[in-house]
Design a protein around this nucleic acid. Sequence first.
RNA 1: GCGGGUGUGGUGGAAUUGGUAGACGCGCCGGAUUCAAAAUCCGGUUCCGAGAGGAGUGCGAGUUCGAGUCUCGCCACCCGCACCA
Length: 862
Amino acid sequence: MSNERYNIRETEEKWRTAWAKRNAFAVSEDPAKKKYYVLEMFPYPSGRIHVGHVRNYTLGDVVARYRKAQGFNVLHPMGWDAFGLPAENAAMERGLHPGKWTRENIAAMREQLKSMGLSIDWSREVATCEPDYYRHEQKMFLDFLKNGIAYRKESVVNWDPVDNTVLANEQVVDGKGWRTGAPVERRKLNQWFLKITDYADDLLEGLKTLDRWPEKVRIMQEKWIGKSQGLQFKWNLVGTDQQIEVFTTRPDTLFGAAFIGLSPDHPLATQLAGGKPGFDDFIRECQQVGTSEEAIEKAEKLGFDTGYMATHPLLGHEIPVYIANFILMDYGTGAIFGVPAHDQRDFDFAKKYHLPIRQVISDDSGHDCTAEAYTGPGKLVNSHYLDGMDIEAAKAEIIKRCEENGTGFGTTQYRLRDWGISRQRYWGCPIPIIYCEDCGAVPVPEKDLPVTLPEDVSFDKPGNPLVHHPTWKNCSCPTCGKPATRETDTFDTFFESSWYQFRYCDPHNETLPLAKDKAAYWMPKGHTVEQYIGGVEHAVLHLLYARFFTRAMKTCGYVDCDEPFMGLFTQGMVTHETYQDTAGKWLFPSEIAKDDSGKFVKIDDGSAVKVGATIKMSKSKRNVVDPEDILGTYGADAARLFILSDSPPERDLEWTEAGIGGAYNYIRQIYGFIIYDVKDFLPPVGTEKPEALSRHATDLLKQAHKMIHGMSQDIEAFHMNKAVARFRTFSNDLKGFKPEAQEWDDGERWALRESIEILIRVFNPMMPHLAEELWQMLGHKTLLVDERWPEVDHTLLIEDTVTIGVQVNGKVRASITLAPTASEEEARTAALAQDNVQKAMDGKSLRKFIYVPGKIVNVVAG
RNA sequence: GCGGGUGUGGUGGAAUUGGUAGACGCGCCGGAUUCAAAAUCCGGUUCCGAGAGGAGUGCGAGUUCGAGUCUCGCCACCCGCACCA
C-alpha cells in the first residue's frame, strides 16, 4: 500500500484559492435557473469559532454543494449577529471598545470559517452592528409604529440595586446580581413592545404549512403560543362595590373553587392589602424572585391573605382572596380562582394555607383528592346542576350561564406575550424615538435615519453609557424644536436576527431592506429559504420572532411571504468528555494525554486525571476543542468528514480524538488507493464505455449506482452519517475489486474509472478539497465544483434475486434466495425444504404460512 | 415546576418505517510486514455456551404470525422557559 503523499494543508489551500478566483459561489438572480436558498444561523462573533459552528456550517455546506451540483442557483450567504452583551462585558472587563472588539472578532472568525472551505458567497456578508444594516430596522420600527404593531407599556425588569443597572436573566445567579451579589429586585420600566399577540392565530395556523420543519419544533411553538378557550368573568368583592375579573380554562370546576388568587402586580393587590401587617415584607419577598418563568415556577408558593372574601352569583358561597406569587400579571387577567382538588399548584397552595379541598370531577376510580390533585377526565360531582355532566358540557354550561347573567363571557387566551424589544444597553441598535416634554414620544423623522450609535463612550460607570453620553442623548424635538432627549434603550438583538434572511438577498441596498425584485426571486411566497439549519435551542424564540417579523414586514409592504423558512433542520449539540486534576480543577483536553498504560495524565507533570461525564462543550468545564487546531492538524476535509460521520445530525455529537483520527485515515487511504494503487490501470479521461461489460464489471457499477441513489436520499433526508457509511462501504467494494483473470480487461478498467469518479463526485459535498484534487489527478481539466451530480442508471438498481429470512413461529431459522417476485408457492417450497426449518417445526403441522415478497417468510407451526 | 426530546454491542451508531437486529466507523484480538516500534495491509469481534442451542434494543406489561419500531405505565439523561445568543 502507498505511503501518504497527500499534502493536506497545501492542497486544501490551493483549491480554496481556485474557487475564490473563479468566484465559484457568487450568485445573482437568474430567471433561467431554479433558485435554492440554504441558510445557517449566523454566528455571534465571540472571537473564535467553536465546534458547534463547524457542525452547523458543514451541514449547510453539504446541502449547498449538493444542490449546486443538481443545477440549482444556490444562495448560501454568511454574516454576523454582531450586537449583544458579550461585547459590553469585554469592554468592562478588558477596557476594549465593543465596536473594536466585535469587528476584530469578525475578521478573525471570517478567516477561520474560510479555512473550512465553505461554498459561501462572501460578497453578501452582513454585520448587524453596522449602520448600513440597522438603519433599515429603524425604518421598519417606524413603520411598525404607524401600523400599530409597536407600542409602549410598563413592564418589569431585573434590577441590580448596587450597580443600578438592569440585568439579563443570565446575569441573575440564585436571585443575586452576578457582579455585585446583591439580591435582585424587580423594577417597572416603560418599554417598547411589538404586538406579536395580534399574529398569534396566524402564527399558529402557519405551523400547519411548515411540513418540512421537525415536528418537535412545531409542537414547541404551538405550546408556546398556548391558545386556550376559557371563561373570563367577574367576581364580587364582598363588602365593596369592586369586582375582580378572572380568567379560567376550567370553568367546569367552579364549584370546587377554594380561593381567588391575585398576581402581586395586580392593581387590586396593593389596594386591598397595602398597609396590612406583613404586606410590605410579602411584596418584597415576591420581588426577590427573578422575572423568568422558571424562577417563578420553582420558587416556593407563597400567599398573602387580603382578608377580603369574594363571591360569584353562580357559586353561592364566599371564598377568600389571596395574593399569590405564582400568578403572572401578563397571562389572562392576572387573577385566577384556585381549585385544589383539580390543579396540583392550587392543591399545594391550599394545603399550605389550610383551605378546603372540594372534589368536583370524578372518574369512579376512587382517586383521593385530599392526597393529590386529580386532573384527568371524568364526570361532575358536588356541583348542583352540573352533576353527571362531562367536563366539556359543564364548561359550556357555566360559560352560557355567565353570559346570560352578564358576569362573563367565553373567550380565547394565549400564553404568548407581546415581545418586549427595549434593552437598557449600549451595544445594540438605537431605538429611533425622541422624548419631548410637550410632544411625548416622537418618532425620529425618516430623513434623519439612521440614528447611529456613538462610538465615543466609556464604561467607567455601571449601566448604559448612552444615558451619560454628553451630546448624543440631548437633541431637539422634531415636532416643536424644544430641547428633548433621545431614547437611550436599544433593540433586543433578536430584532436583527429576525430579518437577516431577507437582507442577504440584497445586502448592499441603501434605500430598502431589500428590493421587490430580489425578494420576488429569492423569497417568493411559499418558496422562501429552502433549508434553514441551526441549533434546537432556537426552536421557540428566534424562530417564532423571525416568523412574526416576516408577517409584520408583509403588513408594512416589504415582502409578500409570511413564512421565512420553508425547511428547517435543528442540529444537536457537540459534547466532550470532561477532565479534572487531583485538585479538582477542570482541564482542557489539550492539557492531557494518555500514558503507556492507556490512562489519562496531565502532560506537564504526569499527574493523574479524573475523567468525567461527556457533556455539552462549555468554557467553564474546559471540555472544548479549538477548531483551528483541528483544521490545522487534520485539515478541513477530515474535520468535515468526522462531523458528518457516526452521529445523526439532529443528535448530540461526541467529539473524540479517535473519531477525527479515523476520518483523517480514510482521506489518506482513499487518496493512496486511487493515486498509487489503481490510477495506472485506468483508461484515459473520456474513454467510451465498452460495448459489453462482464458480469463482474457490471456488479461494481451496480454498487456504484445504488450508492448514488442512496446518497441522494440520505443527503436530502439529512442522514449524513448514513451517507458517509454508504460511500465508505463502496470504498471497501472498490478496494476489493480485482480483475477476474490475470490482467484487467477493458470493461473492468472502464468500470473502475467510472466507479472511482462516481465516488469522488458523491463525496465532493462532504470533502470538497480532496474530491477536487482527485478529480484533477485523474486527468480532468475542469473544476469539480462546476460538475453535475452523477445520474442514476435505474436499470442498474434492479436486483434479480433477493435473500430473505425464514422464521418458524417468529424465530429466524434459515434464509432463502428467490426472485423478488417469486410466488407464495415457490417461497413455501423453498422454505420447507430447509433442514433447519423442518428441525424447528419438530414434526408439527403447518398451521399458517406468511410470505411478504422480498421481506420475510414466517412458518407458523403447531 | 411547565413544555419538548433521547435511550440499541466495549463504543458512536445502522435497521428499506411492523419483516434476517448490530450496516459503516472507533476500540479490541489474531495474522502479515518490520531488527523493533509506529504506520500500513488482511482476518475476527453482541452476550452466555465446548457444542446443539439460548438470551438480547433503559425497566415492566400489552397488541401481532412477527415489535428496536405500535399502545400503556415506570426509570435515567438532555434541551427550552420570553433580557445569553
